[in-house]
């Protein structure tokens, strides 16, 4: 461009912003307020409250009430008792997220570029299994992976699994369950991202002497990165806090941090412990998310 002014993109305002009078700004706030109020009342406020609960004197009880004693020791106790649960949770969630990426990427790629006129049908098929209840699907995996179930029998027959080996009640089953249940959270953002990629860019890479593999590595994958980031987050976050898969497909030996929080809250009614565990989980997840988003270089999520 030779004219300095042309850099300014013809002076048109970005779509949607229109004229920004104070009046419009006020209307923006009005639209935002009801929803924000909801989030403040039922998310921000309870989270702050949860933080205070985590500092209550653990000597109290649900019946007798709690004293606020700023017990930061609660955190120390919680970490000492449950660090292995945290480690296991993040390990399981991490492996499940990686598996989701491995399964979801080809699926999303196939829908975006290879499905042709079957694109919408395939998209529906991606979501369809998840129309039924999450619990029922997990139960059905429990049945499929059970000792008498077809998968175990088959693996024993071809001697990958010893005759007394099992799948159910092992980490394998829990991770498989997590992978299965959170797969659409990976596939859909990936698809949304890949669908925006102009296929001619991939062809151009081929034209410029990229083999399919290097073309993928240098063009397709970087362009789909926003989808990879939001997909992995949308998978990893719920997976790390999940306790249903561990409960239905595993044993207490495979329990994750979610199980512990759930039990502390619902069964033991040890609120300070449950609260400090929750705060630790939330903090770790948030730190990981922020770090990850920074690293991936996509400040704007979804």
């Amino acid at each position: 461009m030779t004219h300095p002014a042309s850099v300014q993109s013809t002076g048109e305002t970005p779509p949607g912003t229109g004229t920004t009078t104070p009046q419009r700004a006020r209307r923006g706030w009005l639209l935002l307020v009801p929803g924000m109020l909801w989030l403040a009342l039922f998310f921000l406020f309870p989270t702050v409250q949860l933080f205070f609960t985590s500092l209550y004197d653990p000597a109290g009880s649900y019946i007798s009430g709690y004293q606020m004693t700023w017990e930061f020791r609660n955190y120390l106790d919680a970490v000492v008792d449950t660090w292995n649960l945290f480690a296991r949770s993040f390990a399981y969630a991490g492996i499940a997220t990686a598996l989701c990426l491995i399964l979801g990427y080809p699926l999303a790629y196939a829908i975006a570029f290879k499905a042709g006129r079957w694109k919408n049908v395939m998209l529906v098929l991606v979501i369809a299994p998840f129309f039924t209840s999450f619990l029922l699907r997990t139960l059905s995996w429990a049945a499929i992976l059970s000792d008498q179930g077809p998968v175990t029998q088959f693996l024993q027959t071809i001697a990958i699994l010893p005759d007394d080996g099992r799948l159910l009640a092992t980490p394998v089953a829990v991770i498989a369950g997590l992978t299965y249940n959170f797969l659409p959270f990976m596939t859909l953002p990936l698809y949304a991202s890949l669908d925006k990629v102009d296929y001619r860019l991939i062809e151009a890479a081929g034209d410029l002497y990229s083999s399919p593999v290097t073309g993928f590595r240098n063009v397709t994958f970087p362009l789909s990165l926003p989808g990879v980031v939001s997909g992995t987050l949308l998978t990893f976050i719920p997976a790390s806090g999940d306790y249903i898969n561990a409960e239905l497909l595993g044993t207490p030996k495979q329990y994750m941090i979610g199980n512990r929080i759930q039990a502390a809250f619902i069964t033991e009614k040890d609120y300070p412990l449950a609260a400090s565990l929750s705060i630790i989980l939330m903090a770790i997840v948030l730190v990981m998310v922020i770090f990850y988003v920074r690293r991936a270089g996509t400040e704007k999520l979804v």
Partner: peptide
């Protein structure tokens, strides 16, 4: 933020409140 919060934490905080 709510999307980045594990459900178990969200449920727990609501119950506590």
């Amino acid at each position: 933020l709510p999307m980045a919060t594990p459900e178990v934490v969200m449920g727990a905080s609501l119950l506590a409140m």
